[in-house]
Design a protein around this nucleic acid. Structure first.
Lengths: 205, 205
DNA sequence: AATAATCCTGAACTTTCGTTCAGTATCTTA
DNA sequence: TAAGATACTGAACGAAAGTTCAGGATTATT
């Protein structure tokens, strides 16, 4: 590899890392190009040399993130014996990986903001669908193995996603230990609920 | 009451209603004063005559919202016989009231944005604490009545809050029926979990 | 009726932020 | 080594948004 190419790749990574960190921490709009340059030492123009635009940079990060996340999961997945263990492993990776997925907060700004490009909109809808599909498969595995009661996997996938999205938002200002504890407790509740098994109650209507 | 005073109160309400609607729908930063004026027919200056600033307007809405929500809850609370029923009623009010609390999305922008005033920061931390206290009390009631297993009410309050926050975010683009179904399912899971009672599994470590 | 108080307008100011671009430095290639 | 390609700089531009203000319209007070 060329020295130029190497350099290019390095700064790209540098910018990407700094930008991701800021996006995750502060959201999309609240993070300015100025701040990214300050965090990298690069200049404004350099960002636009390596990335098409702010949107482009963000989209690139989303793709990269998703790829890495899935890859890491594939490496670990087989270590877990049961579906329940997988759920805890899933939560742990969510916390350890970055304490939250950029998609949860920043991408939501995209969806809602008026300035959304069609390309971005499509890509984001796709990613949410992927997330739900992932969750559904996780739950389906447990059902197939007899660990989980058979029910509505699609609906439960939404509930799980909501739990994850909410936790990432609530845990943004807490320590890793606190976050891990919260996630673990959440999965525990997701699996076993909080009600006494004896006290069966149904929703009204 | 004066004609002037009445007029003033009416426009205040008009501005507040329009602003709340936009904030809930689009988030804090994405909603401009311009848009609020367009939605009300009032002028820019008029908003600043009635409210100190955009932040002030938002803070006012948060307070108002919280008051109304609590009030409505107090009216309904006694109708529910069990703690479990209360949880479903709680979820239902969350959906029906506005499908999401401004605090969930817009307020999070406040917390994270750099431009936060000290006054605002304090007020918001207070409100989150109030929310968690509310949840904890709800859970504690169930524990006291023997419906819920005794555990970590504070931790469970965070899990419940996360569920609500996440659901509100996920349900922003779905119909009322879909949202209600998702919330109900979530509460069902929160109460009973998804695991087969026979298959007991613990978190690793 | 006249003066004061209140409500409201909208143009202009200021700041912030994404984006561009002419120019410089460094490296590759022929 | 000379010419071209690549990596980078930072000032400047333009659009958007929050805020202010001088003044007009409406209502209250004396």
């Amino acid at each position: 590899m060329n020295k130029k190419q190497l350099q290019s790749e390095q700064t790209r990574k540098r910018i990407g890392d700094a930008a991701r960190h800021l996006f995750v921490q502060k959201g999309y709009k609240a993070t300015s190009i100025e701040e990214i340059t300050a965090a990298t030492g690069s200049s404004k123009g350099n960002i636009y040399y390596h990335f098409k635009s702010k949107e482009g940079l963000f989209l690139y990060l989303l793709d990269e993130w998703n790829r890495d996340w899935i890859e890491k999961w594939r490496e670990k997945e087989h270590l877990y014996a049961s579906a329940a263990e997988k759920m805890y492993g899933f939560a742990e990776q969510l916390v350890r990986e970055d304490l939250n997925h950029p998609l949860t907060k920043a991408a939501d700004e995209f969806f809602i903001g008026d300035d959304k490009t069609c390309e971005v909109e499509d890509r984001l809808a796709e990613m949410v669908a992927e997330h739900l599909a992932f969750n559904r498969m996780l739950i389906q595995e447990g059902i197939d193995s007899g660990e989980f009661r058979s029910g509505d996997p699609a609906g439960l996938a939404v509930v799980l996603e909501a739990l994850v999205v909410g936790l990432s938002q609530m845990s943004r200002r807490s320590s890793l230990e606190q976050a891990l504890a919260a996630y673990r407790l959440a999965i525990e509740v997701f699996l076993h609920g909080i009600a006494e098994p004896s006290a069966v109650s149904e929703p009204e209507r």
